[in-house]
Design a protein around this nucleic acid. Structure first.
Length: 589
RNA sequence: GCCCUCGUAGUUCAAUGGAUAGAACAAGGCUCUUCUAAGGCCUUGAUGUAGGUUCGAUUCCUACCGAGGGCACCA
């Protein structure tokens, strides 16, 4: 339809002897202004030195002559210099039909034939799964699904820091305090290790002697030179990784790859050494790394004044994050050679990443051009209310548990089996969290309000799920009453798509459903899930209004089959849309 | 000090340079002898400041004010 309208305008401009430029069609903010509109007259009027309103009128009159042939367009008008198109009932009925007939309604081909690797979550063994990891997971999973829905083959990757000072800090404390009880659950053990990390970290900052001891442990971990430490290391790594796995299961993520710093570090070291100032090697090798104060650094500001110097190998000879990142990138491209490699992290890593990217760009511009770093804001809690049990730190895991528990409390009197209650509270609790992360632009900080996010009202995940469940329940009743989705009605001679009940205006929901594919495409283009979130709220509201104002299942209403068709179309789109946000759709709730 | 990101109703968020700046929460009123009222309908309220570019600026540019992040051996 969009192309059709563009062509109509283009033809008319040709007839008027006006040089046409790019024509942008958009949906007016207000449905009263039509279904599509363009500001082409205002853009062209300037060069032609014409009154934009008159030009718009002229174009409209010209288009109108071609319009008698077009079944999908009801009217066209010029208003305030805009040209507005009103689509016909036939178009809307057809679009509902499209939704029902096309299983993959909403797909686009933006990434057809492309392989996209998305790295996200990135929690570190020996540390808790904190709120930032939860955000990264929600965003990464959604972006993965969106690009997949846009034709890409996606590869999900998780990168985890299983070596480095944080591990030494946890192990120091584990050596002091001993291991947890054998009978504890995996997540309890993981929590204990997380506390050890936190304690060790405090000691590291406050006690010079302990700092030295921990640095020593760190070195031993890299060298694997101490049997006792190796044992604790292997055990702790396994326990925390298993605990993460339980969380991914709850959140609905399956990774194809797990990359570890321990594996990637030597690869990065090799890259840095090959590009070190005194390195011997082929003439083309760029010697961008220099020695400075005993460390090996990259002076990024030499190449871009906005960047700064960063250490790649510290004075103890150990690789830093930057070097590991270089190794990781090389490994990703060796394993999968993606057309696009996305990394999702918090915005605090934005500046480091620019420096790493610059180094990579100099060494391997081809690969650097296929990298994309997406940053998200930080989550903060709206109030002190969220104080977690026993005064522990609030982790991502504790947020999930708390959210699900609250939903369980809410549905405890429902007519569900215990198994259903568990499933529903998990699905809804996770949805509440994910939605509050994905409803806004991912770049900004998020103020998380637990009370609001689990309320079923308004702009929330549960509200969307509730709307779906409600539509689903209507469809169940339709089945019982034997009212099937239908399009063929009265009024012969007007095609088989005529809606019954003449003069009945088009429902708002019909004017929104056909836009879903455009929304998905924009989300994919900008890697921005929040367009989908906003859209889903719009259609949920429109559906609930439709539901409230008209009886859908009614044997005496000739319109009923069509209303069922609308309900079915809504439920399919809501299901697909929520899927793209990584949110499940319980059939009942 | 330098470099990023961001300032929109009381609050949390929207708005490819376009029309009367949209929602939701909170406050008040109405609405279940209809399929899930955890719904629906109605009322009240905002672009940090000062300039500039433009027919038109929340959007682009400059300065200022304010918030967050980063700036050498953590990630």
């Amino acid at each position: 339809m969009k192309e059709k309208l563009e062509n109509l305008i283009r033809e008319s401009l040709k007839n008027l002897d006006i040089e046409s430029s790019d024509i942008f069609l958009e949906h007016p903010a207000d449905l009263e202004m039509g279904d599509y509109s363009t500001n082409i007259a205002m853009i062209l009027a300037k060069n032609l030195e014409m009154n934009p309103k008159e030009l718009a009128e002229k174009i409209v009159n010209c288009v109108r002559q071609d319009l008698t042939q077009e079944k999908g367009i009801e009217n066209i008008e010029a208003k305030n210099g805009f040209i507005n198109f009103y689509l016909s009932q036939e178009f809307f009925v057809n679009s509902i039909k499209d939704v029902l007939e096309n299983k993959n309604f909403g797909k686009n081909n933006l990434f057809d034939g492309k392989k996209v690797m998305v790295e996200y979550s990135d929690p570190n063994p020996f540390k808790p799964f904190h709120i930032g990891h939860l955000m990264s997971n929600a965003i990464g999973e959604s972006i993965s699904r969106i690009v997949e829905f846009s034709g890409a083959k996606t590869v999900r990757a998780n990168y985890q820091g299983d070596v480095g000072p944080h591990v030494a800090k946890a192990i120091y404390k584990l050596l002091q305090s001993g291991l947890p009880n054998e009978s504890d659950s995996i997540s309890e053990k993981a929590r204990y290790i997380g506390e050890c990390y936190s304690n060790g970290s405090n000691l590291y900052d406050t006690d010079e002697n302990i700092k030295k001891e921990i640095d020593e442990i760190n070195k031993k971990i890299y060298e694997k030179s101490d049997i006792k430490i190796n044992e604790i290391y292997d055990w702790g790594r396994m326990v925390t990784l298993e605990a993460f796995e339980e969380i991914y299961k709850k959140l609905g993520t399956n990774f194809n790859y797990y990359f570890f710093e321990s594996i990637v570090a030597p690869i990065g070291l090799k890259i840095v050494n090959e590009n070190y100032e005194s390195a011997e090697g082929p003439e083309h090798s760029r010697r961008i790394f220099e020695k400075s104060d005993g460390a090996i650094v990259f002076h990024a500001e030499k190449y871009d004044p906005k960047l700064h110097t960063r250490v790649f190998i510290n004075s103890k000879g150990l690789p830093t994050y930057e070097t590991k990142e270089l190794g990781l990138t090389q490994m990703k491209f060796e394993k999968e050679n993606p057309d696009l490699s996305i990394v999702i992290t918090a915005n605090e890593q934005e500046e480091y990443m620019k420096v790493v990217s610059k180094a990579l760009e100099i060494m391997n511009p081809e690969i650097a051009s296929r990298m994309k770093h997406i940053v998200h804001g930080m989550m903060r809690l709206a109030s002190g209310k969220m104080s977690s049990r026993k005064g522990n730190v609030i982790t991502g895991e504790s947020l999930i548990i708390e959210s699900c528990d609250k939903i369980l409390e809410k549905i405890k009197d429902r007519d569900f089996t215990d198994e259903e209650k568990k499933q529903v509270s998990n699905d809804v609790g996770v949805a509440a969290l994910k939605y509050s992360i994905l409803k806004q632009n991912i770049g900004g900080n998020i103020i998380y309000d637990a009370e609001k996010s689990i309320s079923f009202e308004g702009d929330s995940g549960p509200y969307l799920q509730y709307s779906y469940a409600r539509a689903n329940s209507v469809l169940g009743k339709a089945k019982v009453e034997n009212i099937l989705p239908g399009f063929v009605f009265l009024k012969p001679g007007f095609g088989d798509l005529q809606k019954p009940g003449f003069g009945e205006s088009v429902f708002e929901i019909e004017k929104l459903l056909y836009r879903f594919p455009e929304i998905v495409e924009r989300s994919a283009k900008e890697f921005a899930p929040h367009y989908i979130s906003n859209y889903l709220v719009d259609i949920a509201r429109a559906f609930n209004t439709f539901y409230g104002n008209s009886k859908i299942i009614d044997k005496d209403d000739l319109m009923s089959p069509y209303k069922v068709a609308i309900t079915l179309a809504f439920s399919l789109i809501m299901k697909n849309g929520l899927y793209l946000l990584g949110i499940k759709t319980p059939e009942r709730m």
